[in-house]
Nucleic acid binder design. Structure first.
Lengths: 154, 154
DNA sequence: CTGCCTGCAAACTCTTTGCACGAAT
DNA sequence: ATTCGTGCAAAGAGTTTGCAGGCAG
């Protein structure tokens, strides 16, 4: 999905609920879609302020749920205290597993379509209907252990 | 593993590191092993105080890592703010997936031995060595939606 | 003028930590 | 004595929220 198309989707999402497309919300949206990789609320605040310096932390936290609700962003919680976000692209990557490098602190994502099947299989036996699933692998960097340097680091 | 055997393992773990088997640590241990299901630090504090009312919150938080390090407890982080713990039983259930009911707030556990294989497969392609993995399904309660009441709810 | 939106600052939750006292070896 | 362990209270991090003012329809 292009940035323009995504922005249109965001505007539609706002309009449908009678919410206004304010300059702050659009700045946050633009900053989010300019991110190359996973980002935190704090990084988003920083970048959004470069576009519109009136953006506050509170508005970032209030806008993030709007973007995840419209499926423009995915929330990625690796249990590290702070949450990460990533643009959802074309929306086909909703079934992804994360591999988190404990040394590099980097998050890799891998398509894992079987998760949906697994979630359904396992839930139905319990009388439940799956809403979402996550699969995460925490791992150590081989290169760091062998050479003392991580090629992906900084 | 019986409670007695587990307590012995805990004592051994403490002894090996020159740590003392204080009354507070043993009270926390006993309270942990008396739990029927997953429990939080707060619930553990409450129950440990029923055994030894000198137990403080700080000591609970300092003792929990000792018990997880000796593989007597497993930590279960479902991304809900607070962490859950569960006695590790005989230790064979290290590869478990969780199904978390969004309505009941209940945690079901399911053996998922393929997780280790998956973690290794996916990590090695990235030059990583897996340390741990988690697979969690969030789901809604069918009974609650249909009848308005959850049979598992208190 | 009515109501949505904002920034600011305070509040919140769970967990960790500094400190001085107490207990065990 | 020396080291380890404790309770208390404060600090911490990330996120949420109450409030008064501002801007839009």
């Amino acid at each position: 999905m292009t940035t323009t198309a995504a922005r249109e989707k965001f505007r539609a999402h706002l309009a449908k609920r009678g919410l206004r497309a304010t300059s702050q919300r659009l700045a946050i949206f633009d900053a989010a879609f300019a991110q190359a990789d996973h980002f935190t609320a704090d990084q988003l605040l920083h970048d959004a302020r470069a576009i519109d310096d009136s953006v506050s932390r509170a508005t970032v936290y209030r806008t993030l749920p709007l973007m995840t609700a419209s499926a423009l962003l995915r929330e990625v919680d690796i249990g590290s205290g702070e949450k990460f976000y990533r643009s959802a692209g074309d929306g086909t990557a909703t079934q992804v597993a994360q591999v988190v490098c404990i040394d590099c602190e980097k998050i890799f994502e891998i398509s894992a379509p079987f998760m949906a099947w697994y979630g359904h299989t396992v839930s139905s036996k319990l009388g439940l209907t799956p809403a979402s699933q996550r699969l995460q692998v925490s791992a150590h960097c081989d290169a760091l252990r062998q050479t003392g340097t991580c090629p992906r680091r900084g």
